[in-house]
Amino acid sequence: MRVVWLYGLLLCAQVAGAADGRLLGSGGVLSVDGAAGGGLVPWAVIAGHSEGREWDVSAAASMLDSGDYDVRAAAVALGWRNRLELSFARLSLGLDGLVERGRFPDRRLDADVIGAKWRLAGDLVYERAPQLAIGMQWRRSRDAGLVGLAGAEDDRGVDVYLAASKLWIAGIGGRRTLASLALRSTQAHQLGLLGFDDTRSLTLEGSLAVFLHPHWLLGLEYRGKPDRLGFAPEDDWADLFVAWLPDKQVHLAFGYADLGSVGGLDGQRGWYLSLRGAAP
């Protein structure tokens, strides 16, 4: 249903604006949180391909199955003049593994993320220095009562991050190569799906991605995570992904992610798939 709504929105945007002022792939895909970047990690890039006075809208639907859990994410992001990105994502965590063990009522845990990102300086491709961006993510659990029972101190929190990204046209093996780092201050337990802490943690995230072919991107990502929820240790995340970018509208990412321990269940890893569309 949500996906239908998203693509409806894309169709509307299709009538409105056109953006193809930047090179293919320079807006990344939409991460689970809605920010443009890799699958799990935000980059300093603005979503879509806007440049000059252009703007565009991207939307993505993602799913991941880690064995005991499944994560679904739907996101939209507006990219404005290669300067500002506004995004919204809804995350939903299915808890089959916990429900089967009788540790949790038969429900999903949902969270919303409203994001804003501002390109501070630089150009991803054409300048020696990396492109820099600052971002904020206002996160809110939609299941305040349940995450409270599970031990979270709060049902909302704000992330602030600084990202630096650089693309070398003739990088590794003469292929376009992108490296990105982000430093984040966050209160969220598992992206906010398990609620929030009162204290902040600093985490480091990074990606390395190579265009093996103009339309095929191979990438590695690492997302440091805080570990402050007493009953359930939280691990750093890592993933390996392949993205197919046939054109500036459609990007498809397919990956294998290791989420470590989630909600007291160890060894959560599995495949994920993310389809992103942009208008027009």
């Binding site: 590794i172 093996g173 003469g174 292929r175 190579v210 093996l212 191979l218 590695l220 890592a238 390996l240 294998y256 290791d258 890893r269």
Partner: peptide
Amino acid sequence: MSRLLLCALALLLGACASTR
């Protein structure tokens, strides 16, 4: 997982050696 990452890195570096 870490073996997967290593494998990907090796592939990337391998591609590196064959140019220039």
